[in-house]
Amino acid sequence: MLKTLLAIIGMTILPVCAQDWPDPDWLIDATVSDWQAVDSYAFAQRNPGDRSGIRTDALLIIRDGRIIHERYSTPTTAKTAHLTWSVSKSVLATVLGVVQGEGRFQLQDPVSRYYAPMQAHPEVRMADLLHWASGLQWQEDYEYAPLKSSVVAMLYTRGRNDMAAYAAARSAVDKPGQRFLYSSGDSNLLAAALRGMLDAGAYADYPWQALFAPLGIDSAVWERDGAGSLVGSSYLYLSARDLARIGLLMQREGRWKLRQLLPASWIAFNRTLFTPAQALPGEANPGGHWWLNQPLAGQARPWPDVPPDTYAALGHWGQALYIVPTHKLVIVRYGDDRDGSYSHNELLKRVLAALPGEGT
């Protein structure tokens, strides 16, 4: 009877596994007690008036479903819904994974099927947007070229009332799918396309109904633009503990307790390297709207001291959600970095070194 009921409501039933889940909150494992090398790097003493150096607001480390280390810098606390910046993009991709599992779209579908302004670019597919490879002209700089910046114009000036429409109006400079060009515009086109996949009136609550509520997330705030579309590129706020729930979902291959919330094929897409790309110094290489510790041809791994299966959601000023499947690790790091001195590799290397018997 239970299996029949679950089948009716679309829930895949899985074998019961002896695993820890945050239900309702995370369990604590204090086995590892020496975090001095990690904290001395992440939480170096800082002058409130000095914006240089490594400025960590939150560090949360989960191993196999339990918190093993947690620390915050005032005023951030465990309950603070912190701005995630471009970590929002990977969370948007996770929402789209639920949609794809419901059979509402396929990766090869033209974006114009779901968002009419993209009829000006009929060859752009959903997969192209998820690879940041729409072929549309874009300039992502913030501080260093604000007068030429597409993202500044989209978020703050002439594009702010309808961000997806602003992105769709860019001219095509490459054939879709042929070149990686990091673009918050591509992500906001995905957020607008999401509306076209859903029943009328379902859009506003969909991320909560489809993803946040099943995971027990209650801190989420997601801003919208003047057209009512989610700012999928940038403006999701989550507490560190709630963002870690998304990390645990990914680390456990899209499964949450007894439910396969994301298709295994979607996780595989997220974690597949997009090869028509260029390396981003100090960062990682693109997958399906996630960032991978996999090398491009002829290049080294972006994070050489970290397992190659590591992947992440990354955001402006040092926001990060890392998943290290080899070690069943989920790590959330929120920051306020302004000068580029923070190193993903260095933090992750120190975390692994603090765990007895672990390593790359």
Rank of each mutant, 00 (worst) to 15 (best):
V221E: 15
E223Y: 15
R224L: 14
R224P: 09
G228F: 14
G228H: 02
S229W: 14
S229N: 15
L230N: 00
V231K: 15
V231L: 02
V231T: 14
G232E: 15
G232C: 14
S234R: 08
Y235G: 06
L236T: 13
Y237E: 11
L238E: 08
A240H: 04
A240F: 10
R241C: 07
D242Q: 11
D242H: 12
D242V: 01
L243N: 12
A244N: 13
I246P: 08
G247Y: 01
L248G: 00
L248R: 05
M250H: 14
Q251D: 15
R252D: 03
E253L: 06
E253A: 12
G254F: 04
G254M: 06
R255H: 03
R255V: 13
R255E: 01
R255N: 06
W256A: 01
W256Q: 03
K257V: 10
L258F: 10
R259K: 02
R259S: 06
Q260G: 01
Q260I: 02
Q260F: 04
L262C: 04
S265A: 13
W266V: 05
A268L: 03
N270C: 14
R271L: 02
T275L: 13
T275Y: 08
A277S: 15
Q278F: 12
A279E: 12
P281Y: 10
G282F: 07
G282N: 07
G282H: 07
E283Q: 10
A284T: 04
N285S: 07
P286W: 07
W291H: 08
L292V: 08
N293F: 01
N293V: 00
L296D: 05
L296M: 02
G298C: 11
Q299W: 03
A300M: 09
A300P: 07
R301Q: 13
R301C: 06
W303Q: 12
D305S: 14
P307K: 08
P307A: 10
D309C: 12
Y311R: 05
L314R: 13
W317L: 09
L321S: 11
L321C: 09
Y322M: 06
P325C: 07
T326F: 02
L329C: 03
L329P: 02
V330I: 02
V332F: 07
R333A: 06
G335H: 00
D337V: 10
D337C: 11
Y342H: 04
Y342R: 04
Y342V: 03
S343I: 02
